[in-house]
Structures are given as structure tokens and as C-alpha cells.
């Protein structure tokens, strides 16, 4: 049995990717399961999805703790979540990485087999938008087999209808452009994932910073006013952020009024300032700015 975990952001199609692959494997006569990490759904928030494929019937309804392979749809996730959590030593990582961002290869290359592809560029060139879920499946098939490009046609047709051709092209292109290096010679044993066998209860408590039952406030209250401020929804931002042209800005405050997350605020001297902690990158501010002073551009990671 092969177990695969997908990392993406809400709306990028990680769940759909797992589902398409499962449908294809089932068409091939195998057994497969695809399922999301169930929870509140939020566009842009880091999400995971799971895929199991086996020649034998699968009798498991649990999350995948020790995947054989992880698939990373969005390169910005690497700094945000531990995408290698629980990955078996020497396991496969299928990663969407631009040619300029291959530093991640060094980070994981010693322990894992990292198959990299610039899926964002392929998606833009074939589909027209940077939605990488179908492209990355081409890389996954190249790296792990599981099914064939041919078998994928049916599930893709059924899912995307008239957009299937473009997505199949993305799949094909990524398959061709993916480089799969040799497995590392002597991978070091992985630390057990949280909650996994080998991880003690005390370790889990410490690692997850969880409270035991009698440390909770009465009724599970939170006695910090405005505690959602600690929840940085800026983590959900992936497709660019607003840039303000100070020459054009007249401090009218439209962006401040329209911003659903109070991420556009006045400074003490009356200028508009962008708050990266809460901006989800929705672009409403740029749309509403009467002076055209705000533009949405890809975020440079040096910032």
C-alpha cells in the first residue's frame, strides 16, 4: 500500500488532486481512498488531503501519519508547515518549486528523494491561472507511478469538462519536466510524527503545547479580549499582496473601509499602511482604490 499526503492551500485543489488520483487508481482495478483533513474550510489556509492506493482492499479510516510520499502544491507552505512531518526515511517529496526556489532541495535532499517541478509556471502557461493541482499529478505519476497519464483522462474529463484538455496538457508537461533524483544513500531515521507510535504522551503535550483538562478555563472560556488578533490570517495569503504607490495615495481610507480583515490601517501621520499579519491577499483594496494607488503583485519572499 502506498500512502500519500498532499499539502496545499484552501482553493488550490489539493483535495481534488487526491480525488482524481484515487479515481484513476480505481479505474486501473486497484483499491484507493482519497479524503481531506476535515475541518472548517478557508480559502488560502494551509490544508492537507490524503490518498491511499493498494492492490488489496483497504481497511483503514485513519489519517496518514507516516506517508511514503508527500506532495507540496504551494512553495510558500514550506516555511509555514512541516511538510515532511512523519515522512518515511528516504521517502518521496513531490514539490512545486520555481527554478529560483530550489533551496528547499538542500533542506530535504539528504533525507528524502525530492522530485521538483515548476508547476506554477506550467499551470500559468497551460491553464492560464496558477492552480497547480493537475500539473503536480503529472509529477506524482512520474515519481511514483500509481496510474498512467492515459488513465487520468477519464477522471479529468469528468471533473473539468471543457477545461479538461488544458489540465491534461498541464499534467503531460509536468510529467515531462519533472526531475526525479536518486534516493539518498543513507537517510537518517525520521522523528516520529505527533501522535504517532513512538511519540510519548508527554512529548506530544510538549510539542503541541496542549493544556490538560484542569488547566482549561471554566467552560473553555478565553479571558483575553480580542484574542482572534493572535490568529494570523495572513498565513492564508498565497497569490500576491497589495503594494501602495505613495505618490498616488490620497489617504481617502476606502481600502481601510473595504478591507474585510482590517489589514489596511492609518498610521499616526495619516498614511495608509499594509498589515501583513492579517492580509489574505483578496485584492478588494486594489479594486476599490479610486486613485489606482494599490496594485496586487507577487510577494517577494525577502520582504
Amino acid at each position: 500500500m502506498m500512502e500519500i499526503r498532499f499539502h496545499g492551500r484552501g482553493g488550490q485543489g489539493a483535495v481534488t488532486a487526491a480525488e482524481l488520483m484515487a479515481r484513476a487508481a480505481i479505474l486501473d482495478g486497484k483499491y484507493a481512498q482519497a479524503f481531506p483533513n476535515f475541518g472548517p474550510e478557508r480559502r488560502g489556509a494551509p490544508v492537507t488531503a490524503f490518498l491511499r492506493v493498494s492492490e488489496q482492499p483497504i481497511y483503514l479510516r485513519e489519517k496518514i501519519e507516516s506517508p511514503d510520499t508527500v506532495v507540496v502544491l504551494d512553495p510558500t507552505l514550506i516555511d509555514l508547515v512541516n511538510v515532511a512531518d512523519g515522512l518515511k526515511p528516504g521517502g518521496m517529496m513531490v514539490m512545486n518549486l520555481a527554478a529560483s526556489g530550489r533551496g528547499a532541495l538542500a533542506k530535504y535532499g539528504d533525507q528524502f528523494q525530492v522530485a521538483a517541478v515548476d508547476a506554477s509556471r506550467i499551470a500559468v502557461e497551460t491553464i492560464g491561472i496558477p492552480v497547480t493541482n493537475t500539473a503536480i499529478l503529472g509529477s506524482l505519476i512520474k515519481a511514483c507511478g500509481i496510474t498512467s497519464l492515459k488513465t487520468m483522462e477519464g477522471p479529468m474529463q469528468r471533473r473539468f469538462g471543457r477545461l479538461a484538455a488544458k489540465n491534461l496538457l498541464a499534467l503531460q508537461r509536468a510529467f515531462e519536466e519533472t526531475e526525479v533524483p536518486e534516493a539518498p544513500a543513507a537517510p537518517s531515521p525520521a522523528a516520529p510524527a505527533a501522535g504517532q507510535e513512538g511519540c510519548t504522551y508527554a512529548e506530544l503535550l510538549q510539542r503541541e503545547a496542549l493544556l490538560v483538562w484542569d488547566q482549561l478555563q471554566i467552560g473553555c472560556d478565553i479571558d483575553l479580549p480580542g484574542s482572534t488578533a493572535a490568529f494570523h490570517t495572513g498565513n492564508w495569503r498565497s497569490a500576491g499582496r497589495p503594494y501602495i504607490d505613495r505618490e498616488k495615495c490620497v489617504s481617502c481610507g476606502f481600502c481601510h473601509v473595504y478591507c474585510p480583515d482590517l489589514a489596511m490601517n492609518f498610521t499616526d501621520d495619516g498614511a495608509i499602511e499594509w498589515d501583513h499579519r492579517y492580509c489574505k491577499g483578496c485584492g478588494i483594496c486594489a479594486e476599490e482604490c479610486p486613485k489606482g494607488a494599490i496594485s496586487m503583485r507577487e510577494e517577494s519572499h525577502e520582504q
Binding site: 496542549l210 490538560v212 483538562w213 473553555c220 472560556d221 479571558d223 484574542s227
Partner: peptide, 14 residues
């Protein structure tokens, strides 16, 4: 203070 906040899998049992 917040009375009755969201409580996910990591806190509901406690």
C-alpha cells in the same frame, strides 16, 4: 472575555 468559543479536536475532549 469570550464565553463559548470554537473548540476543535485538540480541546473538546478536555
Amino acid at each position: 472575555r469570550s464565553i463559548g468559543p470554537f473548540g476543535a479536536q485538540d480541546v473538546y475532549t478536555e
